[in-house]
Design a protein around this nucleic acid. Structure first.
Length: 475
RNA sequence: UCCUCGGUAGCUCAAUGGCAGAGCAUGCGGCUGUUAACCGCAGGGUUGUUGGUUCGAGUCCAACCCGAGGAGCCA
């Protein structure tokens, strides 16, 4: 992990008296200072060189406005024919959208100038055209989803998609920082696994040297082994679900961060989760305000996200949904909200429930029958488990699922048998309860759902560069 | 897997069963403060596929293909 403004350079040293060593060099200026649009405010009055692409252009006679991208932002370039000369101005006039170019000019402050961040423009003095583009498919007009997804490799250049990916990267970084700064160690868990880890979802099958194997749906079970060695761990990687699900919050391949903590009970887990989510949201607002504002996200809603979050039991949630169902006059909603104790929540239940809160809400103590086999039973209520989901507000639904894990080996074996899972594949997992078992808890947070919520965007497919959905694997 | 909607120019969409259209994009021309600019001219079509009804099908019927929204399932 690189820290801002620093760089670690590994230089291997030749063998010297039988030892191999390495020296870490530390420097304040990792790279030659290059102009970047995101830092344009620091360059007012200076001549800069912008290496990038033409995002859009418009002109009015001998005056021309070019919207330029360099990967870090968008800024306006202004070209005036009498200053530039006829030949260069003609060249600019003929540039198509997404032409690659190197522009030299002087930065000026101007409130009228659009961009991210806006308010600055470059008075163009010279241009080197690397490639002039004839006809770029994505025009600055409306397009359909199918077309845009077919052109996802180009769509990523569009400013909204670009802004979402910038926010995503920051969220991911904030997640990693939070764990690294709170005593966690990052351990990678396997992607190829011999059996369904949770026994609850459909998996992608792969051929593993002529033996059946599956793409991982979670790293959690391995995390449980890891905490007995390291105390607190997290894994953060791709996760695969083969459900033929077709909704705005489902991907076949998505990224999940899963922390696991030894000597942690359900109460500790909720305390920890609300600190974690608050940190991620506040850090993202701080570092990506321009992008979130460009996405027209209501930041007052996000600024309110701080611990503590409301906590309700599954029993209370069911009562609230029953009351909502009584109160509504909409027959369709009445139908959708039908639920009995013991059922899992569907999307409409979560949506209506979370509308009652302006922060994420914990729902704890789900019926064991709707949850994975490894969750600790509630003391005195064996039909309920020590699970907790965190539901995001504004209808974004479950972003975290977690629980206290079973710590008793006999209970665990019984649960594995009850779920008809192959015990031989779980023997190592049972071992963890036989050699120094401790109470422990953990959770999984879906990165894309979190990005969708923080960015305030409709569909999860726009929160990952190249989404894998039921009907799409290309590009 | 189920329900609903859609597929016409590169893109977004029109077209009572009767000549295949517009805007954007592209090319050419005009304009000194544009924000998806504006004005004029030009080129651009196997109407998703197959079959059927009809004097005549983009339009009606059937099957299939592809996509979208939702449900279930899931984080």
């Amino acid at each position: 992990m690189r820290i801002a403004g620093t760089q670690h350079v590994w230089r291997s040293i030749p063998r010297d008296r039988g030892t191999i060593c390495a020296i870490i060099f530390h420097s304040e200026t990792p790279m030659k200072q290059e102009f970047r649009i995101e830092n344009i405010a620091n360059y007012v009055g200076q001549q800069v060189t912008l290496k990038g692409w033409l995002y859009a252009s418009t002109r009015k006679g001998k005056l021309m406005f070019l919207r330029l991208r360099d990967g870090t932002g968008i800024c306006q370039g202004v070209a005036y024919q009498p200053d530039l000369g006829e030949e260069l101005f003609e060249t600019l006039k003929r540039l198509g959208q997404e032409s690659s170019l190197i522009v030299t000019g002087t930065v000026k402050e101007n409130g009228r100038a659009p961009g991210i961040p806006g308010g600055y423009e470059i008075g163009i003095e010279a241009v080197e055209v690397l490639q002039n583009v004839e006809e770029y498919p994505i025009t600055p007009k409306e397009h359909g989803v199918d077309f845009l997804m077919d052109n996802r490799h180009l769509w990523l250049r569009s400013s909204k998609q670009w802004a979402v990916m910038r926010v995503r990267a920051t969220i991911k970084r904030a997640i990693i920082d939070f764990f690294d700064n709170n005593g966690f160690i990052n351990i990678d868990t396997p992607i190829i696994t011999p059996a369904a880890a949770e026994g609850t979802s459909t998996l992608f099958e792969v051929d593993y040297f002529e033996e059946k194997a599956y793409l991982a749906q979670t790293g959690q079970l391995y995390n449980e082994a890891d905490i007995m060695a390291f105390g607190k761990v997290y894994c953060f990687g791709p996760t695969f679900r083969a459900e033929k699900s077709k909704t705005r919050r489902h991907l076949a391949e998505f990224w999940m961060v899963e922390p696991e903590m030894a000597f942690f009970d359900l109460e500790d887990l909720m305390d920890f989760e609300e600190q974690f989510v608050s940190y991620v949201v506040q850090t993202t607002i701080e570092k990506r305000r321009a992008e979130l504002e460009f996405l027209e996200r209501d930041l007052t809603v996000l600024e309110n996200i701080s611990a503590p979050f409301p906590r309700i039991s599954y029993d209370e949630a069911i009562e609230r949904i029953h009351a909502l169902r009584e109160a509504t006059d909409d027959p369709e909603l009445k139908e959708q909200l039908a639920i009995e104790w013991g059922d899992d929540f569907g999307a409409p239940h979560e949506t209506e429930l979370t509308k009652q809160f302006d922060k994420p809400v914990f729902v704890y103590g789900y019926p064991s029958q709707v949850k994975a086999f490894y969750m600790e039973p509630w003391p005195g209520r064996p039909e309920v488990c020590k699970s907790v989901d965190l539901l995001a507000p504004e209808g974004y639904g479950e972003i975290i699922g977690g629980s206290e894990r079973m710590s008793d080996p006999d209970l665990l074996i019984a649960a594995i048998e009850r779920h008809e899972l192959p015990l031989e594949h779980y023997q190592w997992y049972v071992d963890l309860r036989q050699y120094g078992s401790v109470p422990h808890s953990g959770f999984g947070l879906g990165l894309e759902r979190t990005v969708a919520w923080i960015c305030g965007i409709e569909h999860i497919r726009q929160t990952i560069a190249f989404p894998r959905t039921l009907n799409r694997m290309n590009p």
